[in-house]
């Protein structure tokens, strides 16, 4: 039995408080979204009901919930695919090294530090000034990629750094072409991480707000719609909306985790991604 020091006990309490701080509001919203028809925005709960979930889908009462959810989901899926389609080859290129690779790497990191509202403003201005016009599927799509790509590329750099090049050499030794090597060896081995990057891309886009504000165009994405509603909706329908969108997020994460664990089981618990000691 390990004896816990007072410090570790204190840290445990701190962690508990942090988790409560993190999930407490969400849980409160979840409970209050089952408020009865007569109930208000705060406790007490007057009869549990699904009343507010039902009214979510009545367009005129709460704004365009269905439309904004659809836009956000399409956008998030698009970002998820484009993000991974760029991040994987970028990771491979940076692993191999090329002229200016370091500069590109630091520019990638730096883009995470640029205030997001400025990115949004810049992209919004660019699209409106060039006459292209801003919309959720053009300018906001680009703005989302500026947010998801650095993460995607960073993750892939880490993945490729741990990938033992001997697997690919073994494939080349066996006569595989470059494409066959990628298709039959590299990709299956990194697949769990690719799923991770997709999950990241999806969730970063799905709840992205500051970069969408000035680049989103006429139609709101879900986070913008919810933000707008907090100003003019005064019923628990807001909570029902919060509960539903949280549910979507959890469903996506759960799906991704299941896919990752399936992919990982196929490659033996990720043991493949570890470099043996260097030897000349």
């Amino acid at each position: 039995m390990i004896r816990h020091s007072p410090l570790s006990r204190a840290l445990q309490i701190l962690m508990g408080l942090f988790l409560l701080f993190l999930y407490g509001p969400t849980i409160t919203i979840l409970i209050l979204s089952f408020q009865g028809p007569q109930g208000g925005l705060t406790f007490p709960l007057k009869d549990a009901s699904l009343h507010w979930f039902a009214s979510l889908f009545e367009v005129q009462r709460v704004g365009d919930f269905g439309g904004s959810l659809k836009r956000s989901l399409i956008l998030a899926v698009l970002v998820m695919f484009v993000n991974v389609l760029i991040a994987v080859p970028a990771g491979m290129a940076l692993r191999k090294g090329f002229r200016g690779a370091r500069t590109l790497f630091w520019l990638t990191i730096a883009s995470l530090i640029v205030p997001s509202i400025l990115v949004s403003l810049g992209i919004g201005l660019l699209f409106s000034q060039t006459g292209l016009g801003t919309s959720w599927y053009t300018s906001a799509f680009g703005a989302h990629l500026t947010w998801t790509l650095p993460f995607g590329v960073l993750i892939m750099i880490g993945v490729f750094a741990r990938l033992n090049p001997a697997y690919e050499e073994a494939a080349v030794d066996a006569g595989a072409t470059r494409w066959q090597t990628f298709r039959h060896v590299t990709f299956p081995i990194i697949l769990p991480n690719v799923v991770g990057v997709m999950l990241f891309g999806f969730s970063l886009s799905y709840d992205e707000m500051p970069r969408t504000v000035l680049a989103g165009g006429a139609y709101n994405t879900l986070p913008l719609e919810i933000y707008a509603m907090t100003n003019n909706v005064t019923t628990p329908v807001l909570y029902a909306l919060g509960s539903l969108t949280t549910l979507v997020s959890f469903a996506v994460i759960a799906t991704a985790l299941v896919l990752m664990s399936i992919a990982r089981r196929r490659t033996g618990g990720g043991a493949a991604l570890s470099k043996p000691s260097e030897e000349t």
Partner: peptide, 24 residues
């Protein structure tokens, strides 16, 4: 070449590892 720590393809079983070159 037989690699240090073997570099067997982790997602393929023994037979598919051996047959890899023929498949390519």
């Amino acid at each position: 070449m037989m690699f240090q720590s073997y570099a067997l393809f982790p997602h393929l079983d023994a037979r598919d590892n051996v047959a890899f070159s023929l498949r390519m």
